[in-house]
């Protein structure tokens, strides 16, 4: 009985479609631009370096952030999850424990951060921004107290078991392990967010939390799972980070926070439905990494890169929110 068609905002839809292509086209243009003007941009070495050092860890953290933002929250404490997992992991390795235990320990530390967030948000009803902000502060103190004020822990060759080292450095079939971990993480988050019942609840929470409550779905349970999952994923990133640099440097996780949020929102702006998505986030991470790398290669220093990235994120947000307003 779909005889009469209600008015569809066709003008808006086409405008939206145009803007989707516009962002992707802009991305392609940026890549082409750097390919032409930045010497060595397309060299295998540079691309490998780009993926390994700039993309993988940020992408994993951003995947966790994508879940949280999809559920309508935000997690400012991803850096704490990264750092605490990295810290416990390195400390356990340094204490001579086996790699498996150390990984489990690191992940457990990150999951604890997630549980604390979940309790603050669901039990004490603190809004996610402030709850995770508080955890961010407390995480800083935990690290300072555990490291005499922030002294990095470097592993010596002997402490770092050779086989473990080999896995991290080489991986399977010539694909570096961090890339494999990223692929697995992306697939897992993709299935969780876009294919599973859980993901449906998450998207609905982000769109209209009260509707979810009125539909008889356990909102606190799912909200908690989202924050714990985000922390756990960030914990994976932390372990990867410290395995690649064979050390724990306090507060290094903080660097991922803004980029993860930025990447997720760039992804939201790109996605056809204007929702956080795994594909969009990964593209957002790539865009940020390409911008950084390209700007570096054409001779912009780190400081100008930051301005450039800030302006880029600002513009994407402007386009994204401008469209949303047009749509309402």
């Amino acid at each position: 009985m779909t005889d009469t068609t209600p008015p569809t905002p066709s003008r808006n839809l086409s405008f939206e479609a145009l803007s989707n292509y516009a962002v992707i086209a802009a991305f392609v243009l940026i890549v082409v631009f750097f390919a032409i003007f930045a010497d060595g941009f397309l060299s295998g070495e540079n691309l490998m370096n780009l993926v390994l050092n700039k993309v993988v860890i940020l992408a994993i953290v951003a995947l966790g952030m994508t879940l949280v933002i999809a559920a309508g929250g935000i997690d400012l404490s991803v850096g704490v999850s990264v750092d605490l997992s990295s810290m416990i992991f390195i400390m356990m390795i340094a204490a001579g424990m086996s790699g498996v235990f150390a990984v489990a320990g690191g992940l457990a530390a990150a999951i604890c951060v997630g549980i604390v967030n979940a309790i603050l948000i669901n039990r004490l009803k603190i809004n996610p921004f402030l709850a995770t902000l508080g955890v961010l502060f407390i995480g800083e103190t935990v690290q300072r107290v555990s490291t005499q004020g922030g002294v990095p822990i470097y592993l010596t060759r002997g402490e770092y078991s050779a086989p473990f080292d080999a896995i991290v450095r080489t991986g399977l079939f010539g694909v570096p392990t961090p890339v494999i971990v990223l692929i697995v993480a992306a697939l897992a988050v993709y299935i969780a967010l876009h294919r599973s019942v859980f993901g449906r609840y998450v998207s609905a929470l982000g769109a209209a939390p009260d509707v979810v409550r009125y539909s008889g779905i356990r909102v606190p349970l799912h909200m908690s799972m989202v924050f714990i999952a985000c922390a756990a994923i960030s914990g994976v990133a932390g372990i990867l980070l410290s395995s690649t640099v064979r050390s724990y440097v306090p507060f290094s996780g903080d660097a991922f926070l803004l980029d993860a949020i930025g990447a997720t929102f760039i992804g939201t702006a790109i996605s056809a439905e204007r929702r956080p998505s795994v594909f969009g986030t990964l593209l957002g991470v790539l865009l940020l990494a390409v911008m950084r790398n390209g700007l570096l290669l054409i001779g912009w220093n780190f400081f100008w890169q930051q301005v450039g990235i800030g302006v880029l994120v600002f513009l994407v947000l402007g386009v994204s929110f401008g469209l949303r307003r047009r749509n309402d």
């Binding site: 449906r200 998207s203 609905a204 769109a207 209209a208 009260d210 509707v211 009125y214």
Partner: peptide, 21 residues
């Protein structure tokens, strides 16, 4: 609009929300 339907989601996602399992 606040409690009944999630207006930003599709008809499909709204109808199946309570019976997804």
């Amino acid at each position: 609009r606040a409690h009944g339907v999630a207006t930003a989601l599709s008809v499909r996602e709204n109808i199946s929300l309570a019976s997804l399992l």
